[in-house]
Design a protein around this nucleic acid. Structure first.
Lengths: 342, 342
DNA sequence: GTAATCGTTTAAACCGGTTTAAACCCTCAA
DNA sequence: TTGAGGGTTTAAACCGGTTTAAACGATTAC
């Protein structure tokens, strides 16, 4: 067993050609006789040669890797249902192409921009995914000035030079509201995510407009933070309202499941006294008691589409179009029910 | 704004020295006059020069990156509380050193070994973390033959050439059992994880030995798969036993929370009719109703320790010692209570 | 005054690929 | 016979660092 792996020079010698010819053959460039190409590929095969990523990286100035910076408290990220599946989808595109995924987890307090700057300046990646988009997101300018290609997950509200891969949260939210209206609810509240997140306000706006379109006034909107603790607190505030809501729509499952616990703790029966709906259809949603009515997106497909789009951009395909994914779907379970006459 | 970033040659010219001298100065190698070093560093600073990772990688044959392969169904990985925090801890060690983390998510059906092989052969990483250790884990031989340094999370049962970073699950599990015994429970069951996982059987063994040491026979052990669905099914089977358990100890929170839902669905009151305990202290554990008694480890510290150890190994520090982390701690909440007389 | 020694610096090879410009070979036309 | 032209192939430069062996200049020893 030879410890050293073969280099392009070994292949060249074996095939009786020059290094350049091997490179041409490998990359399928025209100008080589077919017979020669075959001979070179055979030699490469016999030697088990695979071109060195490092050497390639240096000479073509590419990293053959994509980057993802997750800005989130590691403790809180824990139960986020989005990223693992998203990463799975990304991976399914990257693996066959021999690309890698470089991950960075940055705590909210830390310098998030430094994360992107490192990725760019160290030449670690050829492009990044921009997730958890915020209003007037400073990262768009940052990445532009760093010259790092990117794809935004959903569309930023400001101008953006980057293609967007979008999964519209609104139809799902609207479906939840309509579902509750049909069940007879009129006192419906919302627990929203942090207002700087585009997806948080998108869900909130959809909630409000779906209600007002039906001629119903929202009974309360609590801005929270997508965490379980936040869900608890927001729920307590809503339940303390003079006119208690009969249904609460949460911007994600984590807050919803925590809210469910808080309501039960307060002695309310769900769904008899209070209907509860979430967003994400995380793994536990189906199995808490009662099962959580929620909205299911497809983060795996999201990852696939995002990776494909980012690669198109990097490969220089001109005018990469935005991608619109099929919208999230309402999943009805036991946590929502007809309003009982009180 | 010059688009091109400066190279070592630019710095050399500016400082009036050779490329080699700049390299020496940067890496703090002896043999250069102090004045020269200062001049070079000043020049580098003025130009904002940072050495190219790619060039360095090629010449020193290092990737300056570590790898993590997660073998898990992306859909199921979702609510795993371990990895995000673990990765956060890893990151905290890597970032200051300018290293990156390369992540791979492999679905259980796919070829897991290919993941490691890719990482090694592409020279993407200088070492990997070996998580979710299995009995007679084939990956140990694989990595040995690939010549890829590794650190195992917890100790494999077979011989291993790699240092181990360990967080003993047993004390926590034993504490849970003792807690239940003190509450008067005698009919205690366990829902275990897949038997090929070392940590699954470790928890199970601890459960059994803690019980038998107290002279109590386990009333039932269901082998499950760490997922919510699995937790539901195992719970149903246990509740259907002729002698129903009064307490169930789950090998992780996900199964426990799902089991909690199943018990409630079946009309049982928790903790009055059934006590339930989990393992992990995931974010939701505190907030489901009733709050889940569980065991809290520190995955962030685990990540830190693992990254530090792996780097020691890579840096060639001889005889890297195993690391033993402080054991997981019992967190008592409302889901466990005194046995009511029935 | 020359040689040996030491601390400092440099030129050049090297890592393993890609890429460009030039050389080569063969055929066909003038 | 010579030259032009097309298809193949190659030599060498290049990417941006690291590293080794040799060169250099200033002391010190003889």
């Amino acid at each position: 067993m030879t410890k050293e792996r073969p280099t392009i020079a070994d292949v060249a010698t074996r095939a009786g050609v020059s290094k350049g010819a091997v490179s041409f053959a490998l990359n399928g460039r025209p100008g080589l006789a077919k017979a020669t190409v075959d001979r070179i590929l055979a030699a490469a095969d016999e030697l088990g040669w695979r071109p060195s990523n490092r050497a390639r990286s240096l000479s073509v100035s590419k990293a053959f890797a994509l980057g993802l910076v997750i800005t989130r408290d590691p403790g809180v990220l824990s139960s986020d249902p989005f990223f693992p599946a998203f990463i799975g989808g990304v991976e399914s595109v990257l693996a066959p192409r021999g690309q890698a995924l470089v991950l960075q987890v940055v705590a909210p307090g830390e310098d998030e921009e430094a994360g992107y700057r490192r990725l760019a300046q160290d030449g670690r990646v050829d492009g990044v995914f921009l997730s958890d988009l915020r209003h007037d997101d400073p990262r768009i300018d940052l990445l532009t000035s760093l010259g790092l290609p990117a794809v935004t997950l959903n569309r930023p509200d400001g101008p953006s030079p980057f293609p967007a891969v979008c999964l519209d949260d609104r139809p799902g939210t609207i479906a939840v509201v309509q579902h509750l209206l049909e069940l007879g609810h009129r006192r419906i509240a919302h627990v929203a995510g942090p207002q700087d997140f585009v997806h948080a306000t998108a869900r909130q706006d959809a909630f409000v407009s779906a209600l007002t379109e039906a001629g119903v006034e929202p009974i309360g909107i609590e801005v929270s933070d997508f965490t379980a603790v936040g869900g608890i607190e927001a729920t307590k505030r809503l339940l303390a309202l003079p006119e208690r809501p009969t249904a609460i729509v949460y911007a994600n499952d984590r807050m919803a499941i925590a809210g469910l616990g808080a309501a039960q703790q307060a002695g309310l029966r769900v769904p008899d006294d209070l209907s509860i709906a979430g967003f994400d259809d995380s793994e536990l949603a189906e199995f808490v008691h009662p099962g959580l009515t929620t909205v299911r997106a497809d983060p795996y497909a999201f990852g696939e589409a995002a990776a494909r789009t980012l690669n198109q951009l990097i490969d220089g395909d001109s005018a990469v179009p935005d991608v619109e994914l099929p919208p999230a779907r309402l999943i009805i379970r036991r946590s929502t029910a007809h309003l009982e006459d009180s």
